[in-house]
């Protein structure tokens, strides 16, 4: 075990451990959306920024392996500014209708917004049209593009569990969506494992009506 200092507080971690995981395990909350323990860092949500003692600019904590004597600050003005603007960008393309959302109260966005004191609703910004038409290609899974934050947890989880991913990013830029592709051959069948629904931080994935529910 080695010792690092997070916000002046010493914590003991295994050498080479992931900084984000180490902080979370020590009870120090860092906002994060896309990280999946055990998988290479995607660093796509741009939320888990921390300031490291020896670096001029904040870096995503999920990309850092701890070294002895590491000095970490999680609450500097530069860190919070980056986190707030990343969250505001995510919220700008997210339909805020929490009361009718199935993920209400367990939504990662709600938690992070509360933590960073960012308002969920911005009446001064016009809402964006969700990209594309009706989501998906008619498979068992429906990904709602107006709620999806494009963290890619579902895509990476499916790939880890099944070798191939049924879900994929399609399109690009503002019109990127996560969608599934109906396989006509026997190559890949959705196994109904429900793992993608489970890992979605914002409840954007659900089974299409008619598909059997893994929870039932």
């Amino acid at each position: 075990m080695i010792e690092i200092r997070v916000d002046g507080q010493p914590i003991a971690v295994c050498p080479g451990a992931n900084l984000l995981e180490a902080c979370l395990a020590a009870g120090i909350y860092i906002p994060h959306l896309c990280h999946l323990p055990g998988l290479p860092a995607a660093a796509s949500c741009r939320l888990c920024f921390v300031a490291l003692g020896d670096r001029p600019d904040p870096v995503p904590a999920c990309t850092v392996a701890v070294q002895p004597g590491l000095e970490v600050l999680t609450d500097t003005p530069a860190v919070r500014r980056l986190q707030r603007s990343a969250l505001e960008l995510l919220l700008s393309a997210h339909t805020i209708d929490c009361r009718r959302c199935p993920a209400n109260r367990r939504c990662a966005l709600q938690r992070i917004a509360r933590f960073l004191k960012v308002p969920l609703k911005r009446p001064d910004l016009p809402p964006l049209d969700p990209p594309g038409g009706p989501p998906g290609t008619g498979g068992e899974l429906v990904v709602d593009p107006s709620h999806c934050v494009l963290c890619g947890r579902c895509v990476r989880t499916c790939r880890r569990l099944h070798g191939h991913s049924r879900l994929t990013f399609a399109g690009r830029g503002q019109r990127t969506v996560v969608t599934d592709w109906v396989e006509t051959g026997p190559a890949i069948r959705c196994t109904d494992c429900g793992a993608c629904i489970e890992v979605c931080p914002v409840g954007a994935i659900r089974l299409a009506p008619g598909a059997n529910d893994p929870e039932s």
């Binding site: 290609t137 991913s165 049924r166 994929t168 399609a170 690009r172 969608t179 592709w181 396989e183 190559a187």
Partner: peptide
């Protein structure tokens, strides 16, 4: 194409739609 290259059809679609 997915079967030919040993990748998922969804991955082919992901690349093509980009």
């Amino acid at each position: 194409v997915g079967r030919h290259l040993g990748i998922a059809a969804s991955e082919v679609y992901g690349v093509a739609s980009f």
